Amino acid sequence: MKKVLGILVLSLVVVGGLFAGGQTEAPVPVIWAKSGPEGEALQAAAQAYKDATGKTVSIVIQGRANYRSAYNTALLAGSKDLDAVHDVAFVIPSLAAGGHIVPVDSYINKSAAYDTADFQDVIQREMKFKDKWYMFPSDISSESLVYRTDLIGEAPKTWDELVEIAKKFTRSINLDSPTQYGYAFAAAPGVLEGTFQGIMKAYGASLVDDDGTLRIADSKTVQAFQMFVDMRNKHKVVPSDVIAWDYPELLTALQEGIVPMAAFFTAGMPVLVDANQSPKVAGNIAYSKQPAGPFGAYTRINPLGFMVNAKGQNTEGAIEFLMWLTGKEGSYIYTKAGGSSPRKSILEREEFYSARPWYPEML
């Protein structure tokens, strides 16, 4: 009897120990980002966060090709493989309306230190859906004209002028051209729509009316898009495979002297002007506003940030990190590492102006 009682007591002690001290820790938060400056900056910031807090965040860098479709598939399938994901703000409405990402108002608004007034109104609007925050703002990037100053004395003022300069620097047209093609832009699936924004506005076009009516067949929209089509098919001043190009291809083409100018992103400019990373062209790179069309010159501004997966395993841990990352301390560390925080207090810091002379124009 004593032996049986002893076994029962021992069993209760073991079971009690399991219940008291055997609780499993929350899994490490997982955040997806695509390769490029933002991904590299995110990894550096996550390490700084771990050094400061002892808390680990897993940063999973995905290839840029099919990145958006990959995370959309994961979110729509209710995957628990990620807790948060980085992308541009225009994807928010569809994901928020479908309940695939969660609002983060309760975290942002209750923290006075987060200081939402440090973000311009336009950034705040882009981060919201139905007046609720669905994205932590991490980056601001613009897509405009980048050109080689040692080859092109002055940036083209109009799109027609750009085409003529591009012909001069296309070797199939001018055998003496130092570059193979005269121009390039990002036209990969899922990317071209954004690239089109600048030239579209310059021609007075719009894909959608204020009342939601599609204007794809509108004469102004067709005229604007025809410029891109003719550059590839008629004038042949851009690579034929430009329809698969995104940031990495544009960066390489500029670094290696394949093109003298391109529609490029400010996020990648620090790489281009760094002599260690771009030794062939650093010192001869300038950033200019987009060429003008009949309705003026327009430059596309891209706010980016992090969305939280509605089905994530450790969304609380991810949110804690993202509040720090996009707060004032984390934003500075992230920007120093190659990101580009949209906080006014960051854009106003003159220490960034030598490598990012376009910052004052973003205020």
Rank of each mutant, 00 (worst) to 15 (best):
I108C: 10
F119R: 03
A117V: 12
N109W: 04
R125L: 10
Q120Y: 09
D105Y: 06
R125Y: 10
R125Q: 14
Q124H: 02
S111V: 05
F119P: 01
Y114C: 02
K128C: 12
F119K: 02
A117P: 07
M135D: 00
K110T: 14
K130N: 14
Y134G: 03
S111E: 13
A112N: 09
K130H: 11
D118K: 05
Y114R: 06
Q124F: 01
T116S: 02
R125T: 14
D131Q: 13
K132Q: 15
M135R: 00
M135Y: 05
Y107T: 06
D131L: 09
D121K: 13
N109I: 10
V104R: 07
T116V: 15
F129I: 03
A112E: 12
K128A: 12
D131T: 09
M135S: 05
A117H: 10
V122I: 13
S106W: 01
Y134V: 08
Q124I: 14
W133A: 05
Y114L: 03
Y114H: 11
V122W: 15
R125M: 06
A112S: 09
A112Q: 08
S111Y: 10
S106I: 09
D105R: 08
Q120I: 01
I108W: 04
Q124N: 15
Y114N: 00
E126R: 15
Y107I: 03
M135K: 03
K128N: 05
T116A: 08
F119E: 06
V104P: 10
K130W: 03
K132G: 04
A112M: 04
W133Y: 15
K128I: 08
K128W: 06
V122H: 13
A113M: 02
M127Y: 04
E126H: 12
I108Y: 07
A112K: 12
K128V: 09
V122A: 13
T116W: 02
S111M: 11
A113N: 10
I123G: 03
D115L: 00
Q124C: 05
E126T: 13
D105Q: 04
E126L: 11
M127T: 08
F129Y: 15
V104W: 00
D131R: 13
A112V: 08
M127K: 05
K130V: 05
V122C: 07
D115S: 07
I108L: 12
D105N: 13
M135Q: 07
K110H: 02
W133S: 06
D105V: 10
D115C: 06
F129T: 02
M127P: 07
I123E: 04
M127Q: 02
V122Y: 14
I123W: 06
I123Y: 03
I123T: 13
D105I: 10
S106V: 07
I123V: 15
F129S: 05
K128F: 00
K110A: 11
E126V: 02
Y114G: 05
V104K: 06
W133M: 03
W133N: 09
M135C: 08
A117Q: 14
F129V: 00
K130I: 03
I123F: 09
I123L: 09
K110S: 15
F129A: 06
D121L: 10
D115E: 03
D121I: 04
D105S: 10
Y114F: 15
Y114M: 02
D121M: 01
A113L: 08
W133T: 00
D131A: 09
R125H: 11
D121Y: 00
A112F: 08
